[in-house]
Design a protein around this nucleic acid. Structure first.
Length: 379
DNA sequence: AATGCGGGGCG
DNA sequence: CGCCCAGCATT
């Protein structure tokens, strides 16, 4: 490992940033630890373009850690809806309460303390400590992993612990000497990875710009830039089928709160059947009755009233939704019932179509019900 | 070390 | 369609 590269890296990167860094992102230059924390959590595995719209909205709704801690977790989830990885929202809320109680509303600057908080791992702790407290703490997100793997010609797959340890060690060694440089240095690392040393079209390959590290970058010197960092291939994601029910009573639909641990955890969705593997949609091939459908999708104690209240049953669209690790086909069924149908469960709630915005809905369900809402408005 | 957890953008 | 992304928690 080149000693000169390590000692010269921070200043060269900061110099690069002064000319070619990103500007105008709403969380840049922010010093308030709360605002930094929210931005870091929201940006986990989430594109800048997406966060650009959602971050100011979140900050307007929850301007301080105190306000966030005082809000019901359901409100936080509703605000988070559409961003994905909903454990981030649940952890955000839990973390805000812990900061209020354990740290009297002030985020700690020590990365080791930050890392004890829910939803904050080593990299996010480093980012908060660097941006908000000028602590000499490293980050290691996908950008930094890519930069370092190329710069130092790290051959092993990112999933290997030894490789991860090596990258953390490099990230530590590369830190600027002076803590005052930490915010700009950390931002520069992210900007450089996101805009120049990109995964598919790094500037050294596209030839659009001249990389400041081209003479030292091991991957560039050995023509391995697009091969690094290495990743072990992922298995193809399995496919599932399920039935979902839009149970409509006048202007309201029945929403069901999802269990915390599951996918879309804590969000409000439609009653749904268990997921089935294996292509053929057996239920759709049945002569579907409202009773059979409700038996599939609702808890047992709610079945008895069904037949009496059902007015119509219509087979709706079949929606495909792609997750990172699963593909899901949702067969929609529209069931219309008369006004008398009630449910007693905490997790079942009639919600009028114009109130849907107050609820955190999975993105495909939100889109589906928006279409319904529109059609209904046209009547 | 492997898996679960969303959603959007890009080629 | 497959790959990628300002990761973390759990097992």
């Amino acid at each position: 490992m080149s000693k000169t590269l390590i000692s010269s890296f921070p200043q060269k990167l900061i110099a690069w940033h002064q000319v070619d860094g990103r500007e105008g992102l709403p969380w840049q230059g922010v010093k308030d630890p709360y605002a930094v924390w929210v931005s870091e959590i929201m940006l986990q595995q989430t594109q800048v373009a997406t966060v650009l719209e959602r971050y100011p909205r979140f900050m307007k709704r929850f301007p301080t850690v105190k306000k966030l801690a005082a809000a019901p977790v359901d409100d936080v989830l509703a605000e988070w809806a559409g961003l994905g990885y909903y454990s981030r929202a649940r952890n955000l809320h839990a973390c805000s309460i812990e900061v209020m109680e354990r740290f009297l509303g002030k985020f700690p600057g020590d990365p080791l303390l930050l890392e004890q908080l829910k939803g904050i791992g080593r990299s996010t702790a480093g980012a908060i400590a660097a941006f908000a407290f000028q602590e000499r703490a490293p980050i290691l997100d996908a950008n930094v992993k890519r930069i370092l793997a190329r710069l130092f010609g790290v051959e092993g797959a990112l999933q290997e612990k030894a490789v991860n340890d090596l990258l953390w060690s490099l990230a530590e060694q590369l830190l600027p000497k002076h803590r005052d440089d930490m915010p700009v240095y950390t931002q520069a690392l992210m900007d450089f990875g996101a805009t120049w040393c990109t995964s598919r079209k790094p500037v050294c390959i596209s030839g659009t710009r001249k990389c400041p590290f081209e003479k030292q970058c091991q991957a560039n010197l050995s023509d391995q830039v697009l091969q690094l960092p290495r990743k072990t291939p992922k298995a193809k994601s399995p496919e599932f089928d399920c039935d979902m029910m839009v149970l409509q009573r006048g202007n309201a639909v029945l929403l069901q709160k999802r269990p915390t641990k599951a996918i879309w955890g804590g969000l409000w969705s439609l009653p749904e059947s268990p997921w089935r593997t294996g292509g053929l949609n057996e239920v759709a091939s049945l002569q579907m009755t409202s009773k059979a459908l409700l038996a599939l999708t609702l808890p047992e104690e709610n079945h008895l009233t069904i037949g009496r209240h059902c007015k119509t049953l219509i087979q709706g669209e079949r929606i495909k939704h792609v997750f990172t690790h699963r593909r899901l086909w949702m067969q929609i069924w529209h069931v219309s019932v008369n006004q008398a149908l009630e449910f007693s469960s905490e997790n079942l709630r009639w919600v009028s179509l114009d109130q849907l915005g107050k609820y955190g809905l999975p993105q495909p369900i939100k889109l589906l019900l928006q279409g319904l809402s529109l059609a209904h408005g046209d009547d």
